[in-house]
Structure formats: structure tokens, C-alpha cells
Computed example of a mutant assay.
Amino acid sequence: MSKKAWSLTTNISVAALALCSLQANAANWRYAIEESLSEVQGVYATRFKEVVEANSSHKVQIYPFGTLGESVDVMEQAQAGILQFVDQSPGFTGSLIPEAQIFLMPYVLPEKQSEINYFFKNSKVINETFPKLYAERDLELLSMFPEGRVHITTQQPFETPEDLDGVKIRVMTSPLLVETYKSFGAVPTPLPWGEVFGAMQTKMIQGQENPMFYIESTKMYEVSEVITDIGHNIFTTAVMANKRFYDGLPAEDQALIQKAIGEATDYILEYQQGLEEESIAKVKAAKPDIKLVSLDEDKRVRFREASSSVKEKFVTMTGDSGKAILEQMEADLQAASGK
């Protein structure tokens, strides 16, 4: 064999071995979300998948809501390592990590988009405090991001807490969210999401809360007569990995995941610009007679005052840990406001 031929053969062999090694190290990562692929969590997960697959031989399989059961089932699978990644809001993880319910506290998060974005990207509570708490539950906290202002859909209009007396409002399984709607004058009714549309349709409940894009995409407006914005919260969600899986990865894969998370977070914050207005326009087009109400500050103050005790109840539920988190979060929010 000539030297040239031998060199070519050697190069081909080395390349083949490298390819085999790459394929051997390739993995199929499973990622479950609480929404469909076309909704905010799905858009985020898809961006994450694109970055991972463009920069490695790994594959990411996304499981939309309902394909693996309800939220509690999905979290159990994530903790057990059946899923590598999961996106779930504090409304459900609050029973697992009580301190996470701070993101459900009414009238705490800012309404200005620039302040919201700064807070979620720079908050010490999110980037330093919560990863330790999630780690205690076998979860690696990768990111938290907002999904838009929460609106309340009901059958009848309301302007004061007294107007909600006796009104059954569906809430996620969070003790703090239950306390919030009690303070609003309503009857909080925890239900799995899969049961909500039917419960609204049969009038078993008379209301529910969600970001505007989700109200539109799930057609919740079809079983509602009024959509009201009282300015009480921003829907927050968290992306997590199974901690044993994440800790067992080589450094280059951990760096890849962090890169994908960073790009997906930047992308989703930009993607949501104007999404609420687009969703409102779609709802109006689909149901012209629906009432869309935004309470002014004079009316919102009634709900602010009524729910002022929820902060104290959060501290009671979470003790010194929750108190310290609340203090740090308030400092983070001041920094966002200054920015």
C-alpha cells in the first residue's frame, strides 16, 4: 500500500471511530411541558431543542400537556429520572417547594415589561436562592420566565371583592393561591387543568385565571362571558432538569444545556412582545360579545387591600426561609425598578 493510500485509509478510520464515538454518546432527552407546542412553553422548549440539536448529536423529545398525565404525574416522572427536563409553574410545585409560591403572591411582581424582563434574568432569588431549594427535591432549576399577565374569566362582571362572594374560581393546587382567592372574596376551587373547561361549561365553577394567550388558545372564552384584568400577577413558570441526570453529565453537555436555556430565555422574552394584544384581538374576533374589562387603579386598590394579608400567610407557611426569600425578592424588585 502506498503512503498516500495508507494515510487516506487511516484518516477514514479515525473519522469513522470519531463518528461511532459521537453516536455512542448521543442521547435522547425527554422534556415535558404544561402546554401545547404552539403555546409559550412549547415555543420555549422548541427553541431549547433547536439549540441542543444544532450543537450536538443529542435529540430532544418534547411531550405536550396531557401526553404523560396531569401535572403531578409529570413531576413524579421528572423526580424519578424518567424525564430529563420538565417545565412546571409554581402553582403546582408549590406543594413540593412551598417557597416557590412567592411567585403567586398578588400585587408583588411589576407590570412594566422592561422591569419584568430584568427581574427574571437578574434576580438573586431566582439565580441563587431557588436552585438550592429545588436541588433538595432532586431538581436542577435551569430557568424561570414569565408568560404574561394573569386575567380572570367569569360568567358575570365584577369590580370589587364583594362582587366575587360565593363565586367558585378554579385555582392550581397551591395553598397560597387558595388564600389569595379567599381574600378576593371568591371560593377557590383547585382542579386539574383537564377538568376546567367542562367544569366551566356545566357551571360547576364560574371562573378561572390564566394569561391571555392561554385563554385564547384553549378557547376558555367560549365558556366565559367576561375577562377581567385586575393587575394582580404575572404567570411564572420554571424549567428544571432531573438533578442526578444533570450532575452526571460531562461538562460540555452541562455547558450546552446552559447555552440552550440562555438562548431560549432571550427568545421567549422577545417572542411575547405584543402576544397579549394579539390574543385579545383573536378572542374579540371569535366572540364579539365577550366583555373585556381592565380595572383602573381606584378599583384595583380594593383587591390590593383585601389581599394584603397573603404576604403574612406566605411567611407563616414557609417560616424563616420564606421570610428571607421575601426580603431578597423585594430587593431584587427594587433593582429591577431602578433599571
Rank of each mutant, 00 (worst) to 15 (best):
S321G: 05
S57A: 12
Y271L: 10
T160M: 05
L142A: 09
F48R: 04
P64N: 02
A32W: 08
A100G: 01
T218Y: 14
G148R: 01
R170M: 14
N127F: 01
Q254A: 02
K112Y: 06
T129C: 07
L109Q: 06
A27H: 08
V223I: 03
E34H: 04
I230D: 11
G81H: 10
A199T: 03
T218Q: 14
I169L: 11
Q334I: 13
V187R: 10
P106N: 01
A186Y: 03
D253N: 10
A238N: 12
Y44A: 00
T154K: 01
G207F: 10
E225P: 02
M1W: 11
R244M: 00
P288M: 14
F314E: 08
D266N: 15
M317K: 10
T180G: 08
V51E: 12
L83V: 10
K299T: 08
S294I: 15
G91S: 10
V86G: 05
L333N: 06
P146V: 00
Q273L: 05
D73I: 05
Q254K: 14
G148A: 06
D138K: 12
A260K: 01
E276A: 15
Y214L: 15
S309W: 07
P211K: 00
Q206N: 07
A286S: 14
D163G: 02
A241E: 07
R302C: 02
A260S: 09
A15Q: 11
M240V: 10
A199S: 11
Q272S: 13
V43L: 08
Q84R: 04
A15K: 09
I102D: 06
A335L: 11
G91N: 07
W6N: 00
E34F: 04
L109E: 00
K59R: 13
E327Q: 13
V60K: 06
E147V: 03
E115N: 07
A281V: 08
L22Q: 13
D247R: 10
V283G: 00
K3S: 12
A32D: 11
T160C: 05
C20P: 01
L19F: 14
G322C: 00
L326D: 08
A331N: 06
E115S: 08
F213K: 02
K287W: 06
I152V: 12
V150W: 00
T173P: 05
A260R: 02
R137H: 07
S309G: 05
G207Y: 08
L104E: 15
I62V: 13
A281N: 10
T228A: 13
T153D: 12
E252I: 04
E252R: 05
I82H: 13
